[in-house]
Simulated assay, not measured.
Amino acid sequence: MSHSIDAGLLPERTSLSFVRTSLSIFGLGAACLRWFPLHSSIALIGLAVAGVLVASAAVCERRSRRRRMKRFAAESATPAIVTGAMLGTSVVLLSCIGLWILLR
């Protein structure tokens, strides 16, 4: 009895998790606008940079999805390090800005 594996499911789930994470970070950024002082340009610049990172990660994920699915089917897949690093950096940046505002 042979087991057939659909090579498209795992990369698709990874892609969907990147999309969910991106939307969550955008939501966090929108919520942070409520607490960021309007006169704090550093906080707004940091939020804009985080937004650009998340948008870039979403574009990078969208463009590389088909290539990653082909690589996964050929069993030569590599992790999406750049996309993950952009999302992780945006979370760290938002966290640092939040701490800076709290301690200020």
Results as ranks from 00 to 15, higher is better:
Pro37Ile: 07
Leu38Asn: 12
Leu38Pro: 10
His39Phe: 13
His39Pro: 11
His39Thr: 14
Ser40Pro: 08
Ser40Trp: 15
Ser40Thr: 14
Ser41His: 12
Ser41Asp: 10
Ile42Ser: 15
Ala43Asn: 03
Ala43Leu: 07
Leu44Glu: 08
Gly46Arg: 04
Gly46Gln: 00
Gly46Ser: 03
Leu47Ala: 06
Leu47Arg: 00
Ala48Val: 05
Ala48Lys: 03
Ala48Gln: 03
Ala48Pro: 03
Val49Phe: 06
Val49His: 06
Ala50Asn: 00
Ala50Trp: 02
Val52Cys: 05
Leu53Glu: 09
Val54Ala: 02
Ala55Thr: 07
Ala55Ile: 05
Ser56Tyr: 09
Ala57Ser: 05
Ala57Gly: 00
Ala58Ile: 04
Ala58Cys: 06
Val59Asp: 05
Val59Ser: 02
Cys60Asp: 14
Cys60Glu: 10
Cys60Asn: 13
Cys60Arg: 14
Glu61Ala: 14
Arg62His: 13
Arg63Leu: 10
Arg63Cys: 12
Ser64Trp: 08
Arg65Ser: 10
Arg67Thr: 13
Arg67Ser: 12
Arg67Cys: 15
Arg67Leu: 13
Arg68Tyr: 11
Arg68Leu: 14
Arg68Glu: 14
Met69Thr: 13
Lys70Glu: 12
Arg71Met: 15
Phe72Asn: 08
Ala73Tyr: 05
Ala74Gly: 08
Ala74Asn: 12
Ala74His: 11
Glu75His: 13
Glu75Leu: 14
Ser76Cys: 10
Ser76Gly: 14
Ser76Pro: 07
Thr78Gln: 15
Thr78Ala: 14
Pro79Gly: 05
Ala80Gly: 04
Ala80Phe: 01
Ile81Glu: 04
Ile81Arg: 08
Val82Trp: 03
Val82Asp: 03
Thr83Cys: 05
Thr83Phe: 01
Gly84His: 00
Gly84Ala: 06
Ala85Leu: 09
Gly88Asp: 03
Gly88Arg: 03
Thr89Leu: 15
Ser90Met: 02
Ser90His: 04
Val91Leu: 15
Val91Thr: 09
Val91Gln: 07
Val92Glu: 14
Val92Asp: 06
Val92Gly: 07
Leu94Gln: 01
Leu94Arg: 00
Leu94Gly: 01
Leu94Asn: 01
Ser95Glu: 07
Ser95Val: 15
Cys96Trp: 09
Cys96Lys: 03
Cys96Glu: 08
